[in-house]
Structure formats: structure tokens, C-alpha cells
Amino acid sequence: MKGLKKQRRVQIIVLAFAALALSTGLIGYAMKDGINFFRSPTQVVTDPPRPGEVFRIGGLVEEGSIIRGQSETVSFRVTDTNETIPVRYTGILPDLFTEGQGMVGTGSMQDDVFIATEILAKHDETYMPAEVIDALKEQGVYQDAGSGS
């Protein structure tokens, strides 16, 4: 009788582990299209994304690069001061989107131009997305707002 109980317990544990592994795999598979990796312009140039790969790019909007096209189409360049990537976006830009400020865009590369489906910009005078700050620090060009620069 004791051997049967022990065998049943082992079967339940193995079954629970298999169910957990299966559910983890299914969740990972379902999320794979929803995960957007962040890249700086330098990372895009040195390690180009796969065709059609959706990712996030971030950096500073290059001074003098904003060109407003027909209707809601806007072209500009995003830089991390090391490399520059041209961006094209059709839609309404955030009110605080300006040259020289941090931005993050979601989209994909098409003929060496980043086609953005979403643009995020700072939301107050001092905010810059954490990924942009990290990329700029990596390049050695980020200066903290409180540093008196």
C-alpha cells in the first residue's frame, strides 16, 4: 500500500512539472511577437536587424533634421552622437517632440530607413527614457541635468 501512494505522488509531481513546463513554453511563444528589443543607432549600424524585425530605437533627435512632409508624414534623424539613423513616421507626433531631445520609436528598418509605427518623447523638462540615457552613457556623451553643463 505504501509503494502505491509513493508511486502516485511521484506521478502527480511529474505531471505538475510537465504542465508547468508546457505552460511556460506556451506563454513564451505567445509573447515572442510582443517583445521589442531596444537598440541605439550604433547597435543598428553594427548589428543590423533581420528584415521585418520590429524593435525600438532611441537616441537624440538630430538638430536641423526634422522635415515635415505631406499630411502627417515626418522625417528626421536619430543619433547617439556616434551613428545616425534616418526615421520616417506617419502620424501625430507627441507635443514635446523637438530637436535635440530624447525619443524612442517602435518600428522596423526598410531600405536603411527606420519606419516608425510609434514615437515616444520626453514628458517634462528633465525626463529622458532610461534606455536612451544608458545608450548615451555608453557612448560617453550623457551629462546629467544636475551636473551644470
Results as ranks from 00 to 15, higher is better:
M1G: 15
M1E: 14
M1K: 10
K2H: 13
K2I: 15
G3T: 09
L4P: 00
L4A: 12
L4K: 09
Q7R: 06
V10G: 00
V10P: 00
Q11P: 00
Q11Y: 02
I13L: 14
L15P: 00
A16C: 12
A16W: 04
F17Y: 05
A18D: 01
A18G: 00
A19M: 15
L20T: 13
L20W: 08
L22D: 03
L22H: 03
T24A: 11
T24Y: 06
L26A: 15
L26Q: 13
I27E: 08
I27N: 07
G28A: 09
G28M: 09
Y29G: 06
M31L: 15
K32I: 12
G34R: 09
G34F: 09
F37R: 14
F37N: 11
F37W: 10
S40E: 04
T42L: 07
Q43K: 09
V45I: 12
V45P: 03
P48Y: 04
P48I: 09
P49C: 12
P49G: 13
R50N: 13
R50D: 14
P51R: 11
P51M: 08
G52H: 11
R56H: 05
I57G: 06
G59W: 08
G59C: 10
L60Q: 05
E62Y: 05
S65H: 08
I67H: 07
I67G: 00
I67V: 12
I67Q: 11
R68M: 08
G69L: 08
S71T: 05
E72K: 14
E72N: 14
T73G: 04
V74N: 04
S75H: 07
S75V: 01
R77L: 06
V78M: 04
T79Q: 02
T79L: 02
T79D: 01
D80W: 01
N82D: 07
N82F: 01
N82V: 01
T84P: 00
I85N: 00
P86Q: 02
P86S: 03
V87S: 01
V87G: 02
R88T: 14
Y89G: 02
Y89M: 03
Y89W: 01
T90K: 13
T90L: 01
I92D: 05
L93G: 04
P94A: 07
G100I: 10
G100K: 08
G100D: 03
Q101R: 14
G102D: 10
M103V: 11
V104N: 05
V104P: 05
V104A: 05
G105R: 00
T106M: 06
M109N: 07
M109L: 13
Q110H: 12
Q110G: 01
Q110N: 13
D111G: 11
F114W: 02
F114E: 00
A116G: 07
I119M: 11
L120R: 11
A121T: 13
A121M: 06
T126G: 05
T126V: 12
Y127T: 15
M128R: 05
M128L: 14
P129R: 06
P129K: 05
A130W: 01
A130M: 04
A130R: 08
E131S: 14
V132W: 03
V132N: 04
V132C: 07
I133P: 01
I133R: 06
A135Y: 00
A135D: 04
L136Y: 03
K137C: 12
K137H: 09
K137Y: 08
E138V: 08
V141M: 05
Q143R: 15
Q143D: 11
G146T: 10
S147T: 07
S147W: 04
G148E: 11
S149M: 10
S149N: 13
S149R: 13
S149Y: 11
